[in-house]
Design a protein around this nucleic acid. Structure first.
Length: 201
DNA sequence: CTCTTGATCTTCT
DNA sequence: GAAGATCAAGAGC
């Protein structure tokens, strides 16, 4: 009942090959767009990644810009791990660490198209509308049950599962959202016509 | 549709 | 003390 119209072409393809940790051992600016269309599951609940942002320690908007702190320590470690931080004292946000140890680069996961465990996500979010379940970095962590307990976990081992998308998605790029430094850098990537973005491109 | 505000953790000044 | 990689609810147009 939430949606009166549904696209005749489902964007949620069946999960492909598992992404190994080596997938993340390259430039964050290559990994970020390549993650669009991949499926992220936590304990079997999740969906297709439709929006991300890239951050690097040379970028004034990045948490790692001013060096390591207790919060951002995972960003300075090896690639292929989850960096989870508290946002505005209320929400959790999840990143995938990239490149190499010490490079302190990561991809912020900003939105998913829900495909697995939608009933569980609706319960956790207290919402019915699928479009609102995972359309923001704080929303999707609540829907998937991601908290500080997931900080530092490997991305290729339970409870986390990542699978490549099937086809080449149509990628859009633009300015990142909610930052005040490095605003001109076009390091937000998304599935161009998805209805599950935090904001349209 | 846009704009404003409160919630309240981590880091920085 | 202030700002921040956010969200939801309420007021106003």
């Amino acid at each position: 009942m939430a949606r009166s119209r549904i696209s005749p072409v489902p964007t949620a393809a069946a999960p492909g090959r598992p992404l190994k940790r080596a997938f993340f051992a390259r430039s964050v600016h290559e990994v970020a767009p390549d993650l669009i269309g991949a499926t992220l599951l936590v304990d079997g609940v999740g969906g297709v990644i439709v929006e991300v942002e890239a951050y690097h320690h040379t970028d004034p908007a990045a948490h790692s810009f001013r060096g390591p702190t207790p919060r951002n320590l995972v960003m300075f470690g090896p690639p292929g791990y989850a960096y989870v931080y508290r946002s505005y004292g209320i929400h959790w946000c999840v990143n995938f660490v990239c490149e190499k140890e010490g490079s302190a680069s990561a991809v912020l996961i900003r939105a998913l198209e829900p495909t697995h465990g939608i009933a569980a996500m609706r319960h956790r979010r207290g919402l019915h509308d699928e479009r609102a379940l995972c359309s923001g970095p704080g929303k999707l962590t609540e829907a998937l049950g991601i908290t500080h307990a997931h900080n530092g976990l490997a991305l290729d081992a339970p409870p986390i599962a990542l699978h490549a998308g099937k086809a080449e998605p149509e990628i859009a790029a633009g300015r990142r959202i909610g930052i005040t430094k490095g605003v001109e850098l076009p390091w937000r990537y998304g599935l161009k016509h998805s209805k599950f973005l935090s904001k349209r491109f």
